[in-house]
Design a protein around this nucleic acid. Structure first.
Length: 878
RNA sequence: GGGUGUGUAGCUCAGCGGUAUGAGCACUACGUUGACAUCGUAGGGGUCACAAGUUCGAUCCUUGUCACACCCACCA
């Protein structure tokens, strides 16, 4: 017995536990059908589920469940990312509460602590994913730092290194002074601010009273200046080229050089060049062989190369200005719009800093990654993201992969006593290589840097399947079928996966990349903790059930567009679930249940034939839309069928049968109801796995679990069966409309006549009289050949007129008004038809079918107009 | 500066070269029947941003304009 009320809390968690216990998420390796695989975008081990995950993982689960029901070998590979910086940050914060820093612990102890933290508090999100209903194969859960994946990281690193695609270089990199590590370009966010532009002057060496005027936003970097540049085209300043300027305060002479980097139109036309602290100046420095003077420590305080050692940049800036003012060299300070780089995680200003770092030769790796997308081996859905991908990949810069952190994959790099580099998969091999190199046993020291987190996630598609070992899983599931992720992850992850996979596997990591948008708040603003406008999916699930949230996500997902949260709408989908629940209860109360051996093609009652055809039609539409990643269309197809077709019409239409005397019809209808409800549970299951399973388990004894039920394919649809009932539905709607128009009490049982109906319509009338009477609240309905009397309300219905005799005097003004309005609309339409059909080039050039259709509509409208006019005339004549 | 996307009902959005039966929510009126008030029935509401072009026909294609959003680059 189903409970009276739909209460998802009663069963959602239990059902999930049962699936997991029964191993229902494991791929069926005996299936003779294709493989279908998705690797989950590994959430950070520190992460908790947010609405973005809820969207991302719902879409994946829909695809996974759908394909599982198609009978394929289906793998949804779950796991988590070790999230270098994020995790180190969390653990350090915990230590800080006890007044300890990681340096107090030392590297080894600290890493131990992180692992301990991971075991105890990491991975909350995996529990939450279960609550959402995600049917991942948890028995295969991986972690980007586990032993297997670490081996994969080392192996691919060594390969890349030996192929010359990983190299060490001293370069200007983005330096995060909070974490004291280099970060990649992607981890830097540019923020617009209004800053200051400082104008001052440097004396010219040997020329008393002569100056070169400089504009800068960072006066404190002057101690690292190694030149002043002016354009060779600059008529006013080019005479200074070759002379020397004196950096005040420290009185160091630097050359004035000619370089096109100095735009005569900007600033003063002269630019101070600080090669060690500015990416543009770095290039200028290289061109002119300028020395590079580093003026910063790793914590972004000024170093011994400046007079302000130990000060932070802001303080040093003030000091510099003070000094310059004292020297009479300050000219003016102006407000200046500028962009300042910040670390996306640390939130501190990123400083360009000269350091030894490791790089991946991304431009080389990008070539294959670009080619396979160009040639369609990997397709973006929607295709527009292809452009974003190409744009980025074609302009890609070397990827800085070294991080001066502790938590992460330590690079498989060892240094010999003289600094020779040995890159091997483990220490023993490095030792062997080194001993061979030196001809004797030497002591090696290991590189302390760890890898950028995205290096290991870049291998996710194949490392999770056992690579570098040759495994059955790798053979079966690689390349994976589709990757589902947000557009903000294209550069970070999609691009890197493409590069790494093409390099190592020579095959794309996934055949399709489905990109979705952001989940925003109700007003369309980005959700953020600082704004306080985040919605916790777990709370939503608590209130409305996981199914409602999932259906919301699916119904809102229209190919890449952002989604605005809407609690109203989620409530609406909870209501939808309630509706289905109650429809099932109706079936239960009326002994409707699936019958073994029931053949839905053999039903004879038109209503049953109709719903069977409708169900198949809906199935076909959902299938097509899922195949094309049209989630909202698929969801709406199911929704419309269940609510608009099954509940609104079918259930209402079978009531007279179920409450009637015809036992054969009753039996057929009960079985049909059972069949249709089963069909509903099947096609709704990917979207709402919980309620469908609960109903499936409670409406019959089952030999198959719903999660493994077969998704129906290639069915024939009896389109003829659709028309009869569609005619009846139209008629019922017309009568209801007329009733409402005449303000008749809903309870009143009426008689309705139909005049001028064709034989076929009359037949329908006889066949469906009971149904029509029941749904339109009539005493009787029948064909009529008599006169239309003044007490009859009229409505034109197709070729006939519906007559509603009313007892006593009736106010016809409302009806008059309605008929007039209808006439107006008809006139307007007719004008359109006449215009079109009167246009010779339309008749000549438009496809014949279109012209015919137009003519048919015109004829229909003319007929209806005539009937409506008659009706109106009769009223007016009263 | 370069790029991408979006402007359709009060709101959030679907959709399509052939009259917008658009969807959900909101709104109005009425609620009868033994699945359901987390509901039912009926109804109101749109010059599909603007302009030009292509076409027999444009909300849909092209170009331009305006508005908005996002991405990338950029601290003189």
């Amino acid at each position: 017995m189903l409970e009276k009320n739909y209460n998802p809390k009663d069963f959602e968690e239990q059902i999930y536990a049962q699936w997991e216990k029964d191993g229902d998420f494991k791929p069926d390796m005996r299936s003779d059908k294709d493989a279908f695989a998705i690797v989950i975008p590994p959430p950070n081990v520190t992460g908790v589920l947010h609405m973005g995950h809820a969207l991302d993982d719902t879409l994946q689960d829909i695809l996974i469940r759908y394909n599982r029901m198609l009978g394929k070998k289906v793998l949804w590979q779950p796991g988590m990312d070790h999230a270098g910086i994020a995790t180190q940050m969390v653990v350090e914060r915990n230590l800080a509460k006890e007044g300890i820093t990681r340096h107090d612990l030392g590297r080894e102890k600290f890493i131990e602590t992180v692992w301990k933290w991971k075991e105890q508090s990491g991975g909350t999100i995996c529990k939450q994913l279960r609550r959402l209903g995600a049917s991942c194969d948890w028995s295969r859960e991986r972690f980007t730092m586990d032993e297997g994946l670490s081996r994969a990281v080392r192996k691919i690193f060594v390969n890349l290194y030996k192929d010359g695609l990983i190299y060490k270089a001293k370069k200007l990199v983005n330096w995060d002074s909070k974490f004291m590590t280099a970060v990649s370009d992607l981890e830097v966010v540019q923020k617009e601010t209004v800053g200051k532009m400082y104008y001052y002057k440097y004396p010219i060496e040997g020329e008393e009273g002569q100056f070169i005027h400089i504009a800068t936003t960072r006066p404190e970097t002057m101690f690292g200046d190694t030149a002043v540049a002016v354009s060779k085209e600059n008529e006013k300043l080019k005479h200074l080229i070759g002379k020397k300027a004196i950096i005040p305060i420290i009185n160091r002479a630097i050359p004035i050089i000619g370089d096109e980097h100095a735009d005569p139109e900007k600033g003063t036309g002269a630019v101070k060049i600080t090669p060690a602290h500015d990416f543009n100046d770095f290039e200028v420095g290289k061109r002119h062989n300028l020395p590079m003077i580093n003026i910063l420590n790793e914590d972004a305080t000024l170093n011994e190369n400046t007079p302000f050692e130990g000060m932070d940049t802001q303080t040093a800036r003030q000091k510099t200005i003070e000094k310059m003012t004292e020297l009479g060299l300050m000219e003016k300070i102006e407000d200046h719009p500028m962009v300042i780089p910040y670390g996306d995680r640390s939130g501190v200003v990123i400083e360009p800093l000269m350091t030894d770092q490791w790089f991946v030769d991304a431009p080389t790796l990008a070539k294959e990654a670009i080619r396979v997308v160009e040639e369609g081996e990997m397709k973006f859905v929607p295709t527009t993201y292809e452009k974003t991908y190409f744009e980025w990949m074609r302009n890609i810069q070397p990827w800085c992969i070294s991080r001066q952190l502790w938590w992460g994959h330590q690079m498989p790099i060892w240094y010999g006593p003289d600094g020779t580099i040995f890159c091997e998969e483990n220490e023993e091999e490095a030792q062997i290589a080194a001993n061979k190199h030196y001809g004797k046993n030497v002591e090696l020291t290991r590189e302390t840097d760890v890898l950028d987190t995205w290096f290991s996630s870049g291998l996710w598609a194949f490392s999770t399947m056992g690579w570098p070992d040759k495994t059955e899983f790798l053979d079966t599931f690689y390349p994976t079928s589709v990757l589902v992720t947000g557009f903000d992850i294209i550069f970070f992850w999609v691009a890197r996966m493409m590069m790494m996979s093409m390099y190592m596997m020579k095959k794309v990591p996934f055949k399709t990349c489905y990109i979705h948008g952001l989940v925003r708040d109700e007003q369309g603003r980005k959700m953020s903790k600082s704004k306080g406008n985040t919605v916790d999916p777990m709370e939503t699930i608590e209130t409305y059930g996981a199914d409602a949230l999932r259906f919301f996500m699916a119904a809102m997902e229209t190919q890449g567009r952002d989604i605005n949260m809407s609690e109203n709408r989620i409530a609406g989908y909870r209501n939808f679930a309630t509706k289905l629940w109650n429809a099932s209860r109706f079936g239960e109360m009326n002994s409707c249940a699936p019958v073994k051996g029931f053949d839905e093609t053999s039903v004879s009652h038109p209503v049953n034939k109709w719903i069977v055809a409708k169900a198949k039609e809906a199935t076909r539409a959902v299938t097509a839309n899922l195949n094309n990643y049209r989630f909202s269309d698929a969801a709406n197809d199911v929704y419309q069928f269940i609510w608009g077709g099954f509940c609104d019409w079918y259930i209402e239409m079978i009531k007279p049968i179920l409450y009637g005397e015809d036992e054969n019809a009753k039996a057929e209808t009960r079985a049909t109801f059972g069949w249709v409800l089963d069909r509903i549970l099947v096609i709704l299951h990917p979207f709402m796995p919980f309620i469908t399973t609960e109903l499936w388990n409670n409406t019959a004894e089952r030999s198959t679990k719903l999660i493994h039920a077969a998704w129906p394919q290639n069915e024939n649809i009896d389109t003829k069966a659709l028309n009869d009932i569609d005619w009846t539905i139209d008629l019922i709607s017309a009568i209801r409309s007329l009733r409402a128009e005449m303000n008749l009490p809903a309870g009143a049982k009426l008689t309705v006549y139909m005049k001028g109906a064709e034989e076929k319509s009359q037949q329908h009338l006889r066949d469906f009289a009971t149904i029509i009477c029941s749904l339109a609240r009539l005493e009787k309905i029948e064909a009529y050949n008599g006169e239309i009397t003044p007490d009859m309300a009229q409505a034109v219905f197709k070729e006939a007129v519906i007559l509603l005799p009313l007892k006593g005097i009736v106010d016809f003004s409302a009806e008059k008004e309605r008929l007039r309005k209808e006439l107006e609309a008809l006139e307007k339409n007719l004008e359109g038809y006449a215009r079109k059909l009167g246009n010779p080039s339309f008749v000549e050039r438009a496809p014949a079918a279109v012209v015919e259709e137009e003519k048919r509509r015109q004829a229909e409208a003319l007929d209806k107009k005539a009937k409506t006019e008659e009706a109106l005339a009769r009223i007016v004549n009263l």
